[in-house]
Design a protein around this nucleic acid. Structure first.
Lengths: 221, 221, 221, 221
DNA sequence: GATGAATGAGGGTTCATTCAT
DNA sequence: GATGAATGAACCCTCATTCAT
């Protein structure tokens, strides 16, 4: 043990990049890309600045590679899940939403979203790519499910599936992203399962073809 | 010669702060707070850096005062509108949402949202205050309307009004904020009226007490 | 005097750029471009780093502008002098060389040469431009004078005027540039007037059509 | 497996330092000492950074040893050649100059000059040593030959042999050093044999005692 | 009131050098 | 012997802020 103490540093060639990526993601998420110094990432990973530059040419590349590294595991499986699933569209929508936002979802997804939402002005390209590969892809998938529901008669044909999908997806993303702020703004706190399930329930109620019951009709304009 | 000299200050000095605030808001919205230099604001206002510091002690104060300046006109009236309005809750929800997000809404509201969403890590206090005075206030208002609808029998009593309000409000805010990016990511583009109206329509359908019609029931799990 | 002491800095808007250029030239000449920090230049000018960047966007621009600033006064007049001068070509060559390298020549010329000779690998463009506007231009001018001498019968027609001009010009430049090193390498020291005059004398003797006298002929191969 | 492992070091280890020196010289000449990273040298030698430090303690030592290594073969023989040679001084001067600058001269000489001319501010000691062992030694040798010519009556007694030798030697060195730049500045290009021979021819004509012929006398001041 | 010159702390990046493997 | 991971000092450049004019 005394021997290891004299080591100025430990050689961890294989795990190091991984660790740096992890550290970067965590620190970027916490302080924001712009407010994070390379030193912060290095410190979080237990190395010095130079070590970071040994693996990543620039700060931007560090973020980009971190995104890339987590992207597959974060955004990969949703489509797959639905491909295997059958049953009514409602059920698949519920499945998708839980998969996308639920506790079992790759936690990295929201970390990525949190980071990327903040680089709109710093790394426009990365931000736009995230929009395309994340939120937009998400609502397109949901919209297509709704369309399917409409075509099989499960949903009302006069719903605006595109808008419905957009609002639900972005609303949930934003709520999730804001959760860590609940420490300072308690009103933000909401149980995630409740958030997802209540949202899905509301959405489906809005989609199903219904006969508005008498009592309600009274109020209708 | 003395006459021409005075021409250097063409405008009434008392309108200066106002103009600076306008310029600041515009530039902050475009480039983000962090990426905006005081010089940028000054240039946009047609003055020099020093003049900005003449009226505002720090860059932070410049933003804070800009926010403050626009806050009332941006977030003030929604409650008032509803106070005067009567009729079914549905109608008032529609009214509120149009007032909050529609073209006639103070355009500053989304500008503020755009800016403030970006200062989460730079000016946490301002960001939190915005959350409280903007989105949270918004969804609390909507939630209370939904609650009212529930209590008068206009809406289903088993809807999660809190979650419904959260998702709808944050979803719309985010969509609005992302619209300027449609130049680079065309898939983001959506007509704002359609966005609002379709969302309200979906929300109300999700809220109304309904009898799900037979066809749909078939699919229900 | 006590009053001026409290001044953190002096405002010298008009003279400052000039002073910075002067300081830059001096420091670059002394330490070399690459080994000079912006701080060194700033310190030499009695300001801080930031002030330098107030006037010059980059270190490279600082050098480029310094070169530019001194170039005209350094390389401008040689051609003019010759245009006015008449008499035998020999006399004009002597005139040119004294003008180009003599004590009355703009001292900046050799400073520029000293600096630019050192940026071959750092600022290739500037280096090449110097070659074109300095040494090459110099030897082209000298070569044309020699050619004139040949055409009017003043010089031997079989001399290689191009090579003669090249060697004389670059030899003198190099000798001049190395003079400051005489502090450490005394063998380098040479009186500048002697350097120029003896070189011209040798050159002219090499150019004039001659009858080699008997004694010398004996040794000729 | 053990067999293939040994293949990693294909060359005899004792030739390594040699190869590193070669590589160093080549790369330093191309990019300049300061702009060359140890990695560049290592790469050029087909090894890695660590290997370089295995043989040379510092970057400076690498250059110093490279210089040292090439110095003898570069600057050694000129004196020897002259010692063996007889005949008129003119002939020996021609011999010396061809030996020093001609195609048969150790090509390393100009490479060394090119490198060392660039380290004036980085490695003053090495630079000064080069001056002493290269150019200065060169012009001292030439000057002594001229003096010999003067003493045996082969040359004019009123020539400034020191200055003549200085200018010719430094002029030629500089021209040689600038030749690689002819790619970018074509005006620099000159045939090396012509450069040497024409220079020698001019020098000798300047040295020989002559009777300036009538025609030329007309122009003399 | 307004200008813009000057400051100085901060952070990204480079690279010679060290040293565990 | 050789590798390349890790260090850390150095330096360029940015920009919020101050203040002489």
């Amino acid at each position: 043990m005394a021997a290891t103490k004299t080591l100025r540093w430990e050689r961890r060639p294989d795990s190091r990049p991984q660790e740096l990526l992890d550290a970067a993601l965590a620190v970027f998420a916490q302080r924001g890309y712009r407010n994070t110094r390379i030193d912060d990432v290095a410190e979080a990973a237990g190395v010095t600045k130079g070590a970071v530059y040994h693996y990543f040419a620039t700060k931007e590349e560090l973020l980009l590679r971190a995104i890339e590294h987590y992207h597959d595991r974060a955004f990969g499986e949703i489509g797959d899940v639905l491909r295997d699933a059958g049953g009514p569209v409602s059920a698949r929508i519920r499945l998708m939403m839980r998969k996308a936002f639920g506790a079992t979802s790759p936690s990295g997804r929201m970390t990525l979203a949190l980071i990327l939402q903040g680089v709109r002005h710093d790394l426009p390209e990365a931000h736009q790519q995230w929009l395309r590969g994340g939120p937009i892809k998400g609502w397109k998938l949901l919209a297509s499910l709704i369309e399917e529901g409409k075509s099989v008669g499960e949903f009302r044909t006069d719903v605006d599936s595109e808008v419905a999908a957009r609002v639900v997806i972005t609303g949930l993303i934003t709520q999730m992203i804001w959760q860590p702020l609940a420490l300072d703004v308690p009103e933000l706190l909401v149980d995630e399962d409740r958030l997802i399930d209540s949202t899905v329930e509301l959405l489906l109620h809005g989609l199903w073809p219904t006969v508005v019951i008498a009592a309600a009709e009274t109020f209708e304009i």
